[in-house]
Amino acid sequence: MIIGIWEVISKLGFFPTFMFPPIIIPNEPGGVTVIGTLIGSIISGQIVTATGTTLVRLLIGFSIAVVLGLTFGFLIARYKWVDDTLGFFVTALQSIPSIVWFPLAIVWFGLGNASILFIVAIGATWTMTVNSSTGFKNVPSIYMDAAKTLGSSGSHLLRTVIIPASVPHIISGLRVAWAFAWRAIMAGELLGSTGGLGYLLDLGRSIQAMDLVLSIMIVIGVIGTIIDNQVFLRMERAVARRYGQTV
């Protein structure tokens, strides 16, 4: 439906083809189409390489965020004074869109990979912190009591009860943090990097190839959906089932 409307608008010729390229049927024989460019650039490896670069960055930045988020979350749940200080700030930090950090990142790390990683990590860390601290704080007391009477305490209690009992919260944290990271990396790459889908998007704009831009947007949407559905949603469902919650 949307594709149909798009095709009609494109063919009516209100806009030049480079600005409003058709998706499937070329406007003139041998002309550009979004699908054609998409397939072409996948075959030529341009999009594949860019996707790879983006995903590697994303994975590194996201991992840093997860480790930091879990650590902060634990400290907030464990120590009242951390909760009063950091815990308070995190709520504020969480509401800052991560791209706002970009000017700082450039000054601190220069234009390049490090800045992108910083943006991604900082975009995902705070939600991860909030979710994991909620998880750690709300371990059902029945599990704690049961474990304690069975002789558990200290790091054994942390490892065998507190962390596993927080898994449902941690996983929903992962899912939201991933979404933040995904948005952050696009913004970051678009503004300043070499390689990656965001960079390719910017390149497409500068050479006025909207067919390329649209192809990349499709790739971004598809990858985002697949990862959310296949990885995080599945994890969430599996955990909810085992932990006896209704999905």
Binding site: I142, Y143, D145, A146, A147, K148, T149, L150, G151, T160, V161, P164, A165, V167, R242, Y243, G244
Partner: peptide, 18 residues
């Protein structure tokens, strides 16, 4: 403090679901 000479069975069992 808790000790393994006294063990509790709770109403909902308190089994670890994981």
């Amino acid at each position: 403090k808790p000790g393994t000479d006294r063990i509790v069975v709770f109403q909902e069992g308190g089994l670890f679901p994981w």
